[in-house]
Design a protein around this nucleic acid. Structure first.
Length: 274
DNA sequence: AACGAGTCCTGATCGC
DNA sequence: TGCGATCAGGACTCGT
């Protein structure tokens, strides 16, 4: 399940290999993952365009094209975006294949099809409501002040729900929400409004630490995640709570519990997180 | 306002 | 061994 660190790893991997490369042909395109525009328009707009430098915003990958359009990819739960040799076998659930003038292919694969692909100008995409508003990104230099939005701070929602809300915070998913809450020693079921200023500061710092550490390890390979070259990341070994329900807390040794919070499986330590 | 539930979807895992 | 049920969840919609 790609979250910010996984998407950032993919963007960093692909950026130098895509920049300046000409998109020669759309070899295949499954319309079910294409949210905008039509398949025909996609081909017409994509073929012949030259890639600029990839960027990331939250969990979205933005690839600017020489035409002024951008190719936008969200990986959903199981999406991968990889650069492969032409001769490499095409795996099942590959929904998009773009041939580059380097002789390689940019391939988008997504078994569960929760991801999506868009192509258009920023204006077009925003107008169509396809680029939802995103909150501050934990890698932004100004993130230390998060959340500046008083509505977020005063919200009666549980803090876990706030972390998963892309309008309040961009790029966080279930894994790193649990990890950050553990590091900040905060119970996921606390309401946002109950957090003190220093607790918010702790949480913001924890988010940055958790994300940066995961990027350093090239992302968490839980099941489907692969980096831009199809390799696994190694952050899974360093997860402290996610996927460790029933195992001892690394800090106090007591058993970690799992319960459903904000509609998601949530693992925490009842002793360390209050 | 904010929650839960349902929706999309496939694959891993579990119980019988 | 094999098969059906269950669970996983990002983002969205809908009902309460």
């Amino acid at each position: 399940m790609p979250e910010l660190p996984e998407v950032e790893t993919i963007v960093r991997d692909l950026r130098p290999h895509l920049r300046g490369r000409r998109l020669e042909a759309v070899l295949s395109l499954n319309p079910v993952v294409l949210r905008f525009p039509s398949a025909d328009s996609f081909r017409a707009a994509a073929e012949g365009a030259v890639f600029g430098a990839l960027t990331r915003r939250g969990k979205f990958i933005h690839a600017p094209l020489s035409s002024g359009d951008q190719l936008v990819v969200h990986l959903g739960m199981t999406g991968t975006l990889t650069l492969e040799e032409e001769a490499a076998p095409v795996r099942p659930h590959t929904h998009l294949r773009l041939r580059l003038d380097s002789g390689r292919e940019l391939r988008y694969r997504d078994p569960r099809r929760f991801g999506r692909v868009l192509l258009g100008s920023a204006r077009q995409l925003a107008k169509a409501g396809l680029l939802p508003p995103l909150g501050p990104d934990p890698l932004d230099r100004t993130f230390h002040a998060w959340p500046e939005n008083g509505q977020v701070r005063r919200s009666r929602r549980v803090v876990k729900a706030v972390l998963l809300d892309q309008r309040a915070l961009a790029g966080c998913g279930n894994i790193y929400a649990d990890e950050a809450l553990f590091l900040a020693r905060l119970r996921p079921t606390r309401t946002a409004a109950s957090l003190s200023a220093s607790q918010w500061a702790r949480l913001g710092a924890a988010l940055t630490v958790v994300m940066r550490e995961a990027i350093r390890r090239r992302g968490t390979s839980f099941s489907d995640y692969r980096d831009g070259f199809g390799a696994r990341g190694e952050a899974y070994e360093s997860l402290l709570v996610y996927g460790r329900a029933g195992l001892p807390c690394v800090r106090c040794g007591r058993t970690l519990v799992s319960r459903r919070t904000a509609g998601r499986a949530t693992v925490y330590c009842r002793w360390c997180q209050r």
